[in-house]
Design a protein around this nucleic acid. Sequence first.
DNA 1: CGCCTAAAGTTATATATTTCACATATTTTA
DNA 2: TAAAATATGTGAAATATATAACTTTAGGCG
Lengths: 215, 215
Amino acid sequence: MKTLRVPEATVTRLSIYSRFLERLDRNGVTSVSSGEIAEGVGVSPAQVRKDLAYFGEFGTRGVGYNVKDLMHYTMKILNLTQPWPMALAGAGNLGTALCTYRNFRERGFAIVGVFDNDLTKIGKRIEDLTVQPLEEMPQVIKQRGIRIGIIAVPTRAAQEVADLMVRNHLKAILNFAPIALNVPEDVMIRNVDLSVSLEVLTFNLKYRGTYESEE
Amino acid sequence: MKTLRVPEATVTRLSIYSRFLERLDRNGVTSVSSGEIAEGVGVSPAQVRKDLAYFGEFGTRGVGYNVKDLMHYTMKILNLTQPWPMALAGAGNLGTALCTYRNFRERGFAIVGVFDNDLTKIGKRIEDLTVQPLEEMPQVIKQRGIRIGIIAVPTRAAQEVADLMVRNHLKAILNFAPIALNVPEDVMIRNVDLSVSLEVLTFNLKYRGTYESEE
DNA sequence: CGCCTAAAGTTATATATTTCACATATTTTA
DNA sequence: TAAAATATGTGAAATATATAACTTTAGGCG
Ligand SMILES: NC(=O)c1ccc[n+]([C@@H]2O[C@H](COP(=O)([O-])OP(=O)(O)OC[C@H]3O[C@@H](n4cnc5c(N)ncnc54)[C@H](O)[C@@H]3O)[C@@H](O)[C@H]2O)c1
Ligand SMILES: NC(=O)c1ccc[n+]([C@@H]2O[C@H](COP(=O)([O-])OP(=O)(O)OC[C@H]3O[C@@H](n4cnc5c(N)ncnc54)[C@H](O)[C@@H]3O)[C@@H](O)[C@H]2O)c1
């Protein structure tokens, strides 16, 4: 058994390939080449092959890849053969949008508990979910076997919510609050930070990725 | 005048440093070291200094950085000395949330036009904005001097909306639809892809960033 | 006033990632 | 059945990025 480190960039691209393959499959395409995948997702063919090579040999030389097979392999690698129930903290504007987000379900993700601490929000229905008091999160996490948390509370409340999630053994958190959360080593955080994304754009609108010092 | 290529990761971190400095400044902190910045945003002190070194010398050896000054420098570098009006396509669940997002304004961003093609959405008010027909986007872009577009329409409509934005000379697009958009070289795209973020988490929940081949 | 400490700036080193080129395997075709 | 065409898998080279080690400078203090 060989263990090797996989670049995070490779994992993100694998997720993108996987979804692209799903689309091909839905469209009835049965076979695909690294070049076509590359074209479809905007990377180089060599990159596609290199990425896949971390995990095994999935293609046939001279032919390409079987779409359905490769799709299943990628989903297996990404750990998507099981459903992923998730807990959402914050039933505000963003939280509500997330509850209605259909694409989650297509990949096996589902928000199964929404929690808030505002009495006017608690009890509110969002599609088939009912907003619950934050205090009930621990119990729901346990009952539903939740391992992933989503933070959509205001910045000032984000750390305390993260602490609560950590105390209740969540090991993966998707954070929308624009702040660096402090969590133990074994807890993974992914930040979705729109200001950062926009500021990379404004930077590049000026400099195009280079910087001209003023002398 | 020296032109040098700046890693995208550096720009991303610069944005994070910048916001952290803003917070320090609000809290009345006047001086800060690379170590404190590093601590606050979760990177190494050497990384902070290296990143800043791309753009100049902003600190005082033995002392640290003046918070207000460094904050202004970072904002200048990130091109945040001007307001950034933005056009949003898609007044659905996500689009509505984005319209209410306060943090945009703190950094100079503002959605000044929301566009949809659903007659039941057009005319709807979202805070101080009114949803307009997509056809009016070109005119608003021109009038308001918009350079950044946001795509929050369903996946199937994303490419045509992107095309429209490109035709109207937007050079930067923040895209929430989970698809690779096809745009000319001189147009920048940033994708916000939640499934990808979640799948990096599920991958790591299984392998912790390594992969064990099955033999 | 010179020594000591702290922390920035910088150079060198190490690591990670991507690109390139090619050897290899498969299918098609003459 | 040999040759041609095609597309994978991979090792080496090129790039890019991060870490670590070192040098320089400012300010405090005896
Ligand atoms: N609105 C957006 O489009 C958007 C986009 C990106 C990021 N964000 C970020 O997402 C977060 C939420 O944004 P929003 O616009 O939905 O804000 P919001 O004010 O509409 O919603 C926040 C919700 O969190 C709840 N809350 C507050 N403290 C809580 C606590 N301690 N425990 C549980 N719930 C608590 C509030 O009652 C409210 O319902 C913010 O951090 C924001 O910066 C928002
Ligand atoms: N809801 C979320 O939390 C969320 C999160 C991440 C990404 N996304 C993505 O953002 C996009 C929007 O998601 P949503 O949940 O808001 O969907 P939604 O269906 O609620 O809203 C989409 C809106 O786009 C409008 N629209 C459709 N075609 C259009 C066109 N050609 N021109 C202009 N407007 C058009 C619709 O009328 C609708 O108002 C989707 O691509 C989705 O995958 C959503």
